[in-house]
């Protein structure tokens, strides 16, 4: 049956939704900001309004922007990995980026590091080392299967090392460890957002330029080669781009699961698998998902804040199951 898809409307619609959610997220939290006070945020007239201004500009805005950058990058990279591996279960963490990052951070914490300036670089190095290990171990055979298996092995290794280190950590370190393994946007600040924004946007644009190669990969590895995309350099380029894009984000936010896996599927249901549209739609979709998750993390049990990685899985998984069941019917 012919189904005319108005796919060109999806990106503006998603972007509008993202902006609405951004405002909602900025206005709510442990200290909600009444709607009619919004106009005064730019020019505070009294002490309350000055406090609100400081909360929105100094705390919530960088955090919301980090949610957008991280969600966008994770979902984009998820879509790329699913095409590269031709596998609906693929996600950015598959080649060890998240697990390696968490291992690097946990190692730094257990060795005595306590400031983000020491832990984040350790996490970044960890994610790059784990990804490089996957790539080197997985390139010996043709095809993607060996890279997939290497990724699973490296992930298992990182996971068990994290468990081992957690077992030996003292109670004061444990709290820092859970921050990494469950993910958090609490480390957001203007310096990190200002550094990450051009990086994330630039690398996302480079990945978007690969839409032809990704479409060709959907046809198969041989077919992609017949269409002029040599598999080995393409695979290397995509994995390097994904590692460089997600690595620094993992270093700041810890492991945030499920966004990179689920969002590309949701967007595909709406706009199809054509990567020229899928990639930007997935980016905005991921930004929406993480903005929403961050909002839930802050308003669910105030004043406590839930780890965002827990929210993404807790809400994302049942939602995804519901969608699959609905589609099957």
């Amino acid at each position: 049956m012919p189904k005319p898809r108005r796919t060109f409307l999806l990106l503006p619609a998603l972007t509008t939704l993202l902006l609405v959610l951004l405002l909602l997220s900025l206005g709510s939290g442990a200290l909600p900001i009444p709607l009619k006070q919004w106009p005064y945020l730019l020019h505070p007239q009294n002490a309350d309004q000055a406090l609100w201004q400081s909360i929105v500009l100094d705390v919530r805005l960088p955090r919301a922007l980090l949610a957008i950058l991280a969600g966008g990058a994770l979902a984009l990279c998820g879509a790329v990995m699913q095409a590269l591996f031709r596998n609906p279960l693929a996600e950015p963490g598959l080649v060890g980026i998240s697990a390696g990052g968490a291992l690097g951070a946990v190692l730094a914490i257990v060795l005595g590091a306590s400031s983000a300036w020491a832990i984040a670089p350790a996490a970044f190095v960890g994610s790059l080392v784990a990804t490089a290990a996957c790539y080197v171990l997985g390139r010996r055979q043709q095809g993607m299967a060996s890279l997939l298996l290497a990724g699973i092995a490296i992930n298992a290794l990182c996971g068990s090392l994290i468990n081992l280190l957690t077992y030996f950590a003292d109670p004061s370190q444990l709290r820092g460890l859970t921050f990494w393994t469950m993910g958090s946007l609490g480390g957001a600040g203007w310096p990190s957002v200002a550094a990450l924004a051009p990086w994330v946007i630039g690398l996302s644009a480079l990945l978007w330029r690969e839409w032809r190669a990704l479409n060709a990969l959907l046809l198969g590895e041989r077919e992609a080669a017949h269409l002029g995309f040599a598999l080995k350099p393409l695979r290397r380029r995509l994995i390097v781009l994904v590692a460089l894009l997600v690595g620094p984000l993992v270093a700041v936010t810890g492991t945030i699961g499920f966004v990179g896996l689920v969002v590309p599927h949701l967007v595909r249901l709406a706009s199809g698998a054509q990567h020229r549209q899928l990639l930007p739609n997935a980016w905005v979709g991921g930004a929406i998902a993480l903005t929403l998750a961050d909002w839930l993390a802050r308003v669910a049990l105030p004043p406590a804040e839930l780890p965002i990685g827990v929210i993404t899985s807790l809400v994302g998984a049942p939602f995804f199951l519901w969608l699959l069941a609905r589609k099957a019917r």
Binding site: P88, N215, G220, E223, Q274
Partner: peptide, 23 residues
Amino acid sequence: VLPQAATLAFDLDVREVVAAGAY
């Protein structure tokens, strides 16, 4: 090259598959 059998990992519209020939 026309392969013996080609599967698609994710669904595309027919025109999108055909347009891949111009990549």
